[in-house]
Simulated scan of single mutants.
Amino acid sequence: MSSSAQTSKALGPLLAPPSATTTATVTTSVPPPAVRLNRSNFMLWRTLSLPNLSGAGLHAPAKTIVEGTGDAAVTVANPAYATWWTQDQRVLGLLLSSMDDDIACQMISRTTAAAVWEAVHAMFGAQNRANIRHIRRQIQSLRRTT
């Protein structure tokens, strides 16, 4: 067994997209977020990260496609899925590396960038909405006293 085959077997699905039979070529580059996510800067991290992620075209295509028609139709691996999966894994790595260790550790079971994004948003979004409501109440109370 060759060294690369041993490495591939040891790392399993991390090296190739599930059911991929083609080599993926990634054409979209996503720059890393400018700040590391910590417990106090979610809104800044989100604001700086979202434009880059939105432009990355990370909508998952179908894993398989049907080629041919009628009785000759066969289901085959979708080459666009392999390309998407590779790009998604790069973005996943960028997201995880832009987080403090304690936050990234909570993302261990997430396997796609979208899953990480949703989990982080769920973790910090409610907290930030509560902070926004509190600040609004403070502003309203200041207006009443002046």
Rank of each mutant, 00 (worst) to 15 (best):
Q87N: 09
A119I: 09
L58F: 00
A115K: 06
V116F: 00
L95M: 08
D102Y: 06
A62D: 07
A72T: 06
Q87T: 12
A73Q: 02
A24W: 02
V26K: 04
V120Y: 00
V30C: 13
T146N: 12
M123F: 04
S54P: 02
V116R: 02
I135H: 13
Y81M: 05
P17I: 09
H134P: 09
D71L: 07
M43K: 14
I132R: 10
T22L: 02
R36T: 09
S4L: 12
H134N: 14
T27Q: 11
N131C: 05
R133A: 08
R110I: 14
I135F: 11
T146P: 11
A119R: 08
A115S: 09
K63D: 08
A24I: 02
T47M: 12
R137V: 15
S97N: 14
T28I: 13
A104R: 05
N131V: 11
A122Q: 06
A20V: 06
D102P: 01
L48G: 06
A60E: 05
T75N: 04
N38S: 02
H134Q: 15
D71T: 10
Q127N: 13
S19K: 13
S141A: 13
V26S: 01
T21F: 04
R110Q: 14
I139F: 10
T111W: 11
R137F: 10
P32K: 15
C105H: 12
I132W: 06
L142K: 13
V91M: 00
T28C: 10
L58R: 01
S97K: 15
K63S: 13
N78A: 11
W84I: 01
S40M: 09
L50E: 06
Q140R: 15
P51V: 06
S40D: 09
W117F: 00
Q89Y: 03
L92F: 02
D88Q: 00
Q127W: 09
L142P: 05
R136M: 10
L142H: 09
A62F: 05
T22F: 03
K9P: 02
G68P: 01
H121G: 07
S98W: 03
A114Y: 07
G70W: 01
S19F: 14
P61A: 07
Q140V: 12
D88V: 00
G55T: 03
N128G: 11
P18S: 15
A119V: 08
R133I: 06
R143I: 13
W117Y: 04
N41R: 07
V91H: 00
N78H: 13
G70P: 00
T64Y: 13
L94S: 08
